[in-house]
Design a binder for these strands. Structure first.
Length: 352
DNA sequence: GATCCGTGGCC
DNA sequence: TGGCCAAGGAT
């Protein structure tokens, strides 16, 4: 066993996290469904954010079979607000595949798991290591940070040569025994000791073999990615209102907010807004313009102008604001919560 | 290899 | 305030 793994396992026995929701299973045995769900939720998402979503999701879909048989809208509704919605759609697809192709039992071979939608190399390794104690490696953000510091790996993560070297190191350190504990341990170290800013090297169990610690260059690793300017876009969101209800439409599965229900969008110009609202309902009239606000994605800023529009003669299908059982993007639910508080357009009045 | 894909917390 | 990025994967 590598010295790093040995010292990490010793540290884990005292300082490792053991109370995360997905670490607790019946009969002291983890549930692979829970491990898989947590790993997908944790992709590019911090533990503190995931915990509430994880518990609520499991409450709605207690078993993999429940998930497979649920409507996609119900799954997306539980994912709403968590972001990266392809994860939810792929999770649902994979649940169906496991139900139909694997008799409901999670496959235990790397090639089988890698073939499932939404599961890449690192998530596959995590499922096998944490769920089945197989000797498989992971390379998530924590492991990348720990290993790039320990071994002073040059280059940023987007470079394939850097990833290749980090994967080589990750596999070289993965022990034959207690792979489950080691996998949890190196993630715990990255999350609690070897943090991105202000790492606690004095408390680190592997500082004696860490090249960055010896050279006092911890903050130089991982090397930062060259930064890019985020472009800005503008859009008007049309809130069509009728009898205390709003109009929502399901977005295509491809692209931003795929599969979620959102407002009608228009180019943010008076002419375009007018055209769009009259195309929806010739008798539509603007009730109110709410303040423009900014929503920032990973790769661009979006300036949103909500326009509240009355369309009493529309025959489209509307939704009761407080009874939307589908997934909505964060800015849309934000707009609807503002609408709900507007007393002067009658939305807070109950109707029959 | 580069880009797309969400959101929230941190400093 | 705003840039940064977190238990990545798909194309």
């Amino acid at each position: 066993m590598s010295q790093l793994a040995d010292q990490l396992l010793t540290w884990f026995d005292v300082h490792g996290r053991t109370n995360l929701p997905w670490q607790i299973g019946d009969k002291d045995k983890v549930d692979v469904y829970h491990i898989w769900l947590s790993e997908v939720m944790l992709q590019q998402t911090q533990v503190s954010t995931v915990i509430d979503y994880f518990n609520r999701f499991l409450h709605h879909f207690p078993t993999l079979s429940n998930l497979a048989n649920a409507p996609e809208d119900a799954v997306l509704a539980q994912w709403a607000g968590l972001g990266y919605y392809a994860r939810a759609r792929n999770l649902h697809k994979t649940a169906k595949i496991i139900t139909h192709d694997y008799q409901g039992c999670f496959p235990q071979k790397l090639e089988q798991i890698l073939a499932l939608p939404g599961i890449g190399r690192s998530t596959a390794g995590a499922i096998l290591a944490l769920g089945f104690n197989q000797k498989q490696s992971i390379l998530d953000g924590n492991v990348k940070r720990v290993l790039s510091r320990t071994h002073q790996v040059k280059g940023h993560y987007a470079q394939s040569s850097t990833l290749k070297e980090l994967w080589r190191l990750a596999e070289s350190h993965t022990p034959n025994i207690r792979t489950d504990h080691y996998t949890q341990a190196i993630m715990d170290l990255g999350a609690t000791i070897c943090t991105r800013t202000n790492p606690s090297c004095s408390l680190c169990p592997i500082s004696n073999i860490c090249k960055s610690s010896a050279a006092q260059t911890q903050l130089d690793y991982p090397n930062p990615k060259p930064k890019k300017i985020k472009p800005s876009r503008s859009v008007a969101m049309l809130v069509f209102v009728k009898n205390s209800q709003v109009y929502l439409q399901k977005r295509p599965s491809q692209g931003i907010w795929g599969g979620l229900w959102s407002l009608v969008e228009s180019e943010d110009t008076p002419v375009s807004i007018t055209q769009s609202m009259h195309a929806f309902d010739p008798s539509a009239t603007i009730i109110e313009q709410l303040p423009v606000f900014k929503h920032t994605f990973t790769h661009y800023h979006l300036h949103i102008r909500p326009v509240v529009i009355s369309c009493p003669s529309s025959s489209a299908k509307f939704h009761l604001i407080d009874q939307v059982e589908v997934g909505m993007p964060k800015p849309v639910s934000k707009i609807l919560s503002q609408i709900s508080s507007l007393t002067h357009i009658g939305l807070n009045e109950q109707i029959d």
